[in-house]
Amino acid sequence: MSEQPVQGQVITSQLIASLAARTALETPGVLRLEPTIQGFLARLGPAALQNLRNPGSQNGTYRHDGVTATISDGTARIHLDIATDIAYTALNVAETVKHRVRESISHTGLTPGRVDISILAIEPQPRTKLS
């Protein structure tokens, strides 16, 4: 257990996972994480705050529904499983997600490490009929 405060707080891998998930979902062309991320975010709302008040171990891996976050010696690594919109170029979407996730990790004070992305599905956006 090495509880080193980062900017006065301990950042858990669960929080980083939530951050990466939110960042990915806000990126244009990402339809969802695979499998369901909804339940994860719902559970995480209060839990994330809880973690800031009761900081756990900084090192460790958190894995849930399409996102895995590993923190090791101040560096955060991420793996995301995503579904992309067929109207976008999947590879470009993945690069944008990487860039944005690394940027948001750097705001926590941790060093962004590798962001690996698996594109598990490419589909038309639901309810948007392609002609």
Binding site: A83, L91, K98, R102, R114, D116, I117, S118, I119, A121
Partner: peptide
């Protein structure tokens, strides 16, 4: 270096 991208055969 900043990470790999892979795609499922499915997608």
């Amino acid at each position: 270096e900043n990470g790999t991208t892979e795609i499922s055969e499915q997608a």
